[in-house]
Design a protein around this nucleic acid. Structure first.
Length: 117
DNA sequence: CCACTGACGAGTG
DNA sequence: GCACTCGCCAGTG
C-alpha cells in the first residue's frame, strides 16, 4: 500500500464502528490492514475536520481512555460526551470497560468473549 | 535530507 | 501497576 493512502483506510474502518461501541487504535489499524500502525490511526483521526462522517469519538486507546491532548477545543471532553450520548458509560478512573464496550466485529475477538451471557 | 514530535501498542524489569 | 524502550508512519522546522 502506497504511503499517503492510509487515511482512507482508517476512516473506512472507523465508520464501521457501531454506536454504543468503541474500538482501540490498534484494533482499527489492524482492521484497516495496518497492524502496528496504531499511531497512524490516531494521526489520521487528528486530521479529521469537524462535521466529518467519521465517528472518531468511538476510537480510544488500548487502556480504554481518552488520550487526546489539549486541542484547545476540548475535543477530549467532547469525545466522552458523545460516547455517553450513545449509552457508553465511563469508570471513575475516566477509562472505559473495554470488556463491555469494545467493538467486536464478526470473526475477530480481541477482548474476552462472554459465554452464555 | 535530518531531527524532533505526535489522538499508540506491546514487551521487559 | 508503573517506568522504560523499540517500532511504525506522517508532519513540521
Amino acid at each position: 500500500m502506497a504511503r499517503g493512502s492510509l487515511y482512507p483506510l482508517v476512516y473506512a474502518v472507523v465508520r464501521r464502528i457501531p454506536a454504543g461501541r468503541v474500538a482501540t487504535y490498534g484494533q482499527v489499524a489492524s482492521l484497516a490492514g495496518l497492524p502496528r500502525h496504531a499511531r497512524l490511526v490516531g494521526y489520521a483521526l487528528h486530521a479529521l475536520p469537524e462535521g466529518s462522517p467519521v465517528p472518531w469519538h468511538r476510537v480510544v486507546n488500548a487502556k480504554g481512555g481518552i488520550s487526546l491532548r489539549g486541542d484547545g477545543a476540548g475535543h477530549d471532553v467532547l469525545q466522552r460526551l458523545m460516547l455517553r450520548r450513545e449509552g457508553v458509560r465511563f469508570r471513575e478512573d475516566g477509562t472505559l470497560p473495554l470488556d463491555e464496550f469494545l467493538w467486536r466485529p464478526r470473526g475477530t475477538a480481541p477482548g474476552p468473549r462472554r459465554e452464555r451471557g
